[in-house]
């Protein structure tokens, strides 16, 4: 695919995620004022930080009167999962110059990660050797970014007068997309086991704050997947 085709496809594949993020962006914008952020600070946080979960947690901590150190440490813990995404995508972007890697990293959200890893890792590199996949990444990332800014703006400007979007359950769009991405990845037993273990640990740890349950779940799934894969390899070696 050409650059512009990749870019457009990336943006288009993000559409369900955009829909799912709309209520959250608007709610963030409408709540920011009561947590003590000015209009410009609310917009500035979305523009400069661009991390939904961390932004919401910052609002609740600000509202509770937490100090700067607590807020920044919490941001770090909440965002640890991004380092995992960074490692996961590094083999696919390592050939790019810094002027690409820096902005792509800045825009690396959960949603962009899911869609982009699907493009990179789930396509057969021989059948689909497009050299322009980073344009897909850029299209997906920019779509999410612009959508988040617009929704924050709507929330800041219109706040409580926006109809109750949350009640529509648009966040299901993200779940459906993640399901459509993850199910075809379950091609062998280690992958299935990783999915089951990660799910179980995520459920067991759902009460942990700051996405720590997600981190525990991710690492458990990864460890089980690798262990099973290694055991399979050993069994094959012993049989041959």
């Amino acid at each position: 695919m050409t650059r512009s085709q990749e870019f457009t496809q990336g943006a288009r594949d993000m559409l369900p995620m955009l829909l799912g993020a709309i209520p959250f962006g608007i709610i963030f914008g409408s709540l920011a004022g009561s947590a003590g952020l000015s209009t410009w600070q609310a917009l500035g946080m979305s523009l400069l930080v661009f991390a939904g979960s961390a932004q919401f947690i910052a609002l609740s901590l600000l509202g509770a009167g937490a100090g700067l150190t607590v807020l920044l440490l919490t941001t770090l813990v909440v965002n640890l999962r991004h380092a995992l995404y960074s490692a996961s995508l590094q083999p696919f972007v390592r050939h790019l110059p810094k002027r690409w890697r820096v902005p792509l990293a800045f825009w690396l959200t959960d949603e962009a990660y899911a869609v982009v890893v699907h493009r990179y890792a789930d396509s057969d590199p021989l059948a689909d050797a497009s050299p322009n996949k980073h344009w897909y990444f850029l299209g997906a990332a920019l779509a999410m970014y612009l959508n988040w800014q617009l929704c924050t703006l709507v929330g800041v400007l219109f706040g409580q007068s926006v109809p109750n979007l949350e009640a529509w359950g648009l966040d299901f769009a993200m779940l459906a997309t993640f399901i459509g991405i993850v199910v075809p990845m379950l091609r062998n037993r280690p992958q299935v086991a990783a999915a089951l273990v990660a799910s179980a640990v995520a459920l067991a740890c759902h009460a942990l704050p700051y996405k720590l349950g997600l981190m525990a779940a991710a690492f458990s799934g990864i460890v089980v997947g690798v262990l099973l894969e290694r055991r399979n390899e050993r069994l094959i070696e012993e049989h041959s």
């Binding site: 996961s88 993640f178 991405i181």
Partner: peptide
């Protein structure tokens, strides 16, 4: 590590989806 990274999408997305359905 490379082997482990193959399981990141599966593990992370499952850990978001399943609690999203049940809670």
């Amino acid at each position: 590590v490379r082997q482990g990274l193959h399981y990141v999408p599966t593990a992370v997305l499952s850990a978001i989806v399943v609690p999203g359905m049940l809670l």
